[in-house]
């Protein structure tokens, strides 16, 4: 059970990050010679100004929520899974390839696509887990390298064996309309993927706080030596943690394919798997706060895209802001720890 103190810390984390982001965006607009008033008007209107905009913000939030939850699961076990991007890609590819080639009842097809995506992501995360368990390989490097391998592999497959048509781009054939995930918010492309993500968040919260598996996960993360003495197999847990972490990210990739893009494309993700690291940290690795953080980042991503047209800020500038947030938030832990010592 987390203390009230811990909860307050989570809330401050998300709000503080949002505040820092706003200040940075203001500065960026001023330096680029744009009016912050117009810029923020565009940001605000672009992210929340109507049903469509809200829908887009929630689509972005959903796309970030899956990998962020997966990352949080691994981080809680003390394992740095920075391979969510690759896990998301292989999950999306599996869903796209299955969806284009199976002929089943729509509901069953959706289950097969999402299940296939989770499985592919799980295997991809599991490779790093297996390397960690079997050879003691550093999971940071392994997951990072697997991101690049995933990009090349999926790129090769959609340029060749899984290509939609001789004249098409690097993507799989479009899904039949019946296979699309149902739309949640009318007149937007927000699908029930959001509900699935929220269900995963609830499940993750329960698993981490109420089950033996969750207890063991946190144990190897917080006190590996004590966990080992208590008879928990670190190897087995590493494999399980990275595989399930990858499965959640892979499910996210599959839900983008089944829910919004309706095909797999190599440019499916603008780096959701990397941004999700920031989301997981802003959310204090707590499933509930990660939902809040994903929404805040959804606002930033969606509004940022609308803002660039008005404020002449390149789309990459949003990465500067995210980068600063990540470093500052990580430093915040240190400041908090020192304040605790001082008092």
């Amino acid at each position: 059970m987390k203390s009230l103190m811990d909860r307050a810390r989570g809330a401050r984390g998300a709000l503080g990050a949002l505040a820092i982001a706003l200040v940075l965006i203001t500065a960026a607009m001023l330096v680029a010679g744009a009016s912050p008033i117009d810029g923020f008007a565009a940001l605000f209107a672009g992210a929340l100004g109507g049903t469509h905009q809200l829908g887009e913000t929630l689509v972005q939030a959903t796309a970030l929520l899956f990998p962020a939850l997966g990352i949080a699961l691994a981080f809680r076990a003390g394992l740095f899974n920075i391979g969510a991007e690759g896990q998301l890609l292989v999950g999306g590819l599996a869903a796209g390839a299955l969806g284009a080639n199976v002929h089943l009842a729509p509901a069953l097809a959706a289950v097969i696509m999402l299940g296939g995506g989770a499985l592919a992501g799980g295997v991809w995360g599991g490779i790093a887990g297996w390397l960690k368990a079997r050879f003691g390989a550093n999971e940071i490097i392994a997951t990072l390298m697997l991101n690049f391998i995933a990009a090349s592999l999926t790129g090769y497959l959609v340029a060749g064996p899984l290509k939609s048509s001789p004249a098409g781009g690097p993507e799989t054939a479009p899904l039949a309309h019946a296979y699309w995930l149902p739309v949640l918010l009318p007149y937007t492309r927000l699908s029930i993927a959001l509900l699935i993500a929220l269900a995963i968040a609830a499940l993750l919260h329960v698993v981490l706080t109420r089950t033996v598996f969750g207890y063991e996960l946190r144990a190897i993360g917080e006190a590996p030596e004590a966990a080992r003495r208590a008879g928990i197999s670190l190897q087995r847990m590493a494999l399980l943690a990275l595989a399930s972490s990858g499965a959640i990210a892979g499910l996210g990739g599959a839900s983008i394919v089944a829910g919004e893009l309706h095909r797999f494309n190599t440019q499916l993700s603008p780096g959701y798997g990397y941004t999700a690291i920031a989301v997981a940290l802003v959310g204090d690795l707590d499933a509930r706060w990660i939902c809040v953080a994903a929404f805040a980042f959804g606002i930033l991503e969606t509004g940022g895209l609308a803002m660039q047209a008005v404020a002449n800020i390149p789309k990459d500038a949003i990465h500067v802001i995210e980068g600063v947030i990540v470093v500052l938030l990580a430093a915040r832990r240190y400041v908090a720890a020192r304040a605790a010592i001082a008092s």
Binding site: G46, G50, H52, Q53, E56, V59, A63, E171, R189, I256, E260, L261, N265, T266, Q267, L268, S269, P270, T302, L305, A306, Q308, A309, K315
Partner: peptide
């Protein structure tokens, strides 16, 4: 005139929708 830039293939649809709306 108004220009929207895309960061990934997933941005195409919302960008076109946004201008449509």
């Amino acid at each position: 005139v108004e220009v929207l830039q895309s960061r990934s293939a997933a941005d195409y649809q919302p960008n076109i929708e946004a201008l449509t709306n």
